[in-house]
Nucleic acid binder design. Structure first.
Lengths: 150, 150
DNA sequence: TCCACTCAGTTTCATAATTAAACTCACTGC
DNA sequence: GCAGTGAGTTTAATTATGAAACTGAGTGGA
């Protein structure tokens, strides 16, 4: 039982997609951030086929974004929880959410608010060191063999 | 010729994935940001099957992230270019890239640098209004029916 | 003891998506 | 003419996905 791979080891985007690029994986992570932990709850929340859910969870656990934790010994039951690696995926979900709210708007949509101000969030990506916004114009890529290009 | 849909219209993440969640779509956008514009160049760069590339490009054009532009009338030829909607997808690619570089590291990997300092970027998501970092702890979601939850 | 129920899957089979390779079509340049 | 280019389609074989039924360890009640 393989999963497809984009296999361009030099590209960090391709490597990320190797782990989360399959159908459902990102929505499973979204649910995990919402607090969903159990097999049947994921299944009902997503409407995913049970065998697919089983595979995706396995993959996410193998990749280290989720971990299983027993919450009952008798009967033996466990739940799926985000690891640090999984929690660190949050910015991807937020930028996806923001893009969806900006460009694929619907009348009724979930909106992220600042916990402080209760105002809708306006997420911006900046560089921690310089404070500069990160845009195609402010970034150069450095590829394995030295140099730099846009 | 349908494409699958997650169909949860209230979730902006699901709506985004409706457009870019299929295999290859995100890597096509990545290549577009790198400057790739022509069918055969995408095909060679990605190693994608030509009929799949054709479908994905069509979908991305229909969804408004790419547009076709003739660059020669005789012979009739066109290229694919990012629209504003497509360019606005950049933060998703950057957060994916950052996650990949942090958690799926390889010896030789492309790394984004600040154009100013030529130092590796350390992308952080902040709220434009408050300047606060955006993390699960600083966000509450507002769902269509009023209230708020984590 | 028997029966119904829960959770977390697995199995089976039908349907849909993806791939590789070959083919099309409108040109150009020799 | 004839080979070559760019941008795709078509076809047939391979994979992935989905729906529904089934499994297995255990609980709780009659």
């Amino acid at each position: 039982m393989q999963h497809r791979s984009f296999a361009d080891a030099r590209c960090p985007i391709a490597r990320s997609l190797d782990v989360v690029g399959e159908w459902w994986s990102i929505l499973i992570l979204r649910d995990a951030f919402r607090g969903v932990r159990r097999f049947d709850d994921f299944q009902e929340s997503l409407g995913i086929a049970r065998n697919m859910l089983s595979r995706r969870l396995k993959r996410l656990v193998d990749a280290g974004l989720l971990e299983t934790r027993p919450y009952s010994a008798r009967p033996p039951r466990h739940e799926y929880r985000l690891t640090d690696k999984g929690r660190d995926f949050y910015p991807v979900l937020m930028t996806l959410m923001d893009w969806g709210n900006r460009w694929a708007r619907r009348r009724h949509s979930a909106v992220p608010l600042s916990r402080l101000t209760r105002e809708p969030l306006d997420p911006v990506l900046i560089d921690r060191a310089t404070g500069q916004p990160i845009t195609p114009a402010t970034v150069v890529m450095r590829y394995p063999g030295s140099g730099a290009a846009s």
